[in-house]
């Protein structure tokens, strides 16, 4: 590996003191079996156990088809696992709820609502008073950089803007956990980078727990405290890697950081090895 001048001297500032972390989500021996079109059982997830700590940014990283999205949907309560259970704050997850806010790759905005209407939807559903909901929604729209677009319909927005609206819409009902399902997967490289930066900036403010599904190694390392590497058919957890890089992270600095590069290379190498070895045991 190339030797890169270390910038660590700039980062001597102490890492923010962390309170003893407590588990917010526990995934306990979860397996998921799907029926394929040829009526054969396909084991999408095999015996997954994982604990996610409060205020952590955790990425689930793996090739397509490894069941990483399914795992996220199980935590969201959108899909029930075939066996095992997921818990949120010690309570079994039986369905979706406003404590877990999803952001999908497909945006899934309400096309008949304006940007403002989309962001207002959750708070109104939760019974927040109109004036309060309006003020909060406007602030959120500004925070995601869409001030001035309040009255636009989704069809009038670019992909990146739609995902910003989707993020604001989910943040608007104050979920404790953000469930992000390849949120930047449908965006071009430039837009993706900008949204990653903005997401980190927003996350730094209140450090919600984030479960982030991606197949991009860079993205996972750049954003996360912890990367959960998954392997394919059946979907299993291969390894969990703590990303010990200081925050707040800046992309321009991180790209030059040897530790960042090491994480990326190590993870990529591990995936390559498993590809060459065929299916993991």
């Amino acid at each position: 590996m190339k030797v890169v001048p270390s910038r660590s001297s700039e980062w001597v500032r102490p890492v923010t003191p962390q309170k003893p972390a407590s588990a917010i989500i526990e995934i306990d021996h979860v397996s998921q079996v799907f029926q394929t079109s040829s009526r054969r059982d396909h084991l999408a997830l095999s015996d997954i156990s994982l604990t996610i700590e409060e205020r952590a940014f955790v990425s689930i990283l793996g090739p397509s088809g490894c069941g990483k999205s399914t795992l996220l949907y199980i935590v969201g309560g959108f899909v029930s696992p075939t066996s095992g259970a997921a818990k949120m704050k010690g309570k079994a997850i039986t369905g979706p709820g406003p404590d877990r806010g999803p952001v999908f790759q497909e945006f899934a905005l309400f096309p008949w609502k304006t940007v403002f209407g989309n962001v207002m939807y959750g708070p109104r559903q939760q019974g927040v008073r109109t004036a309060e909901a309006e003020a909060q929604s406007l602030a959120l729209i500004e925070m995601v950089g869409l001030k001035g677009y309040e009255n636009f319909y989704p069809k009038e927005l670019s992909g990146g803007m739609k995902q910003r609206v989707a993020l604001a819409r989910t943040l608007a009902y104050h979920p404790e956990v953000l469930l992000m399902d390849e949120p930047f997967g449908a965006l071009d490289a430039h837009t993706r980078t900008r949204l990653q930066n903005d997401l980190l900036n927003i996350w730094e403010r209140d450090r919600k727990t984030v479960l982030f599904v991606t197949h991009s190694v860079d993205e996972a390392v750049f954003l996360s405290d912890k990367v959960v590497m998954m392997s394919k058919s059946p979907g299993r957890i291969r390894q969990v890697i703590d990303i010990d890089l200081p925050r707040p992270r800046r992309r321009s600095e991180l790209l030059l950081d040897a530790r960042y590069q090491e994480y990326v290379v190590d993870i990529e190498r591990m995936f390559d090895e498993s590809d060459e070895a065929g299916s993991p045991p």
């Binding site: 877990r100 309400f110 008949w112 819409r169």
Partner: peptide
């Protein structure tokens, strides 16, 4: 879109509310 209904479910819409307030307008 299924994900649109999921988004509604996460906001706390009941199945009937989802039918009237998401499926109908969509």
């Amino acid at each position: 879109e299924e994900k649109m209904l999921w988004s509604g479910a996460a906001m706390g819409l009941s199945p009937l509310q989802r039918l009237v307030r998401i499926v109908l307008p969509a």
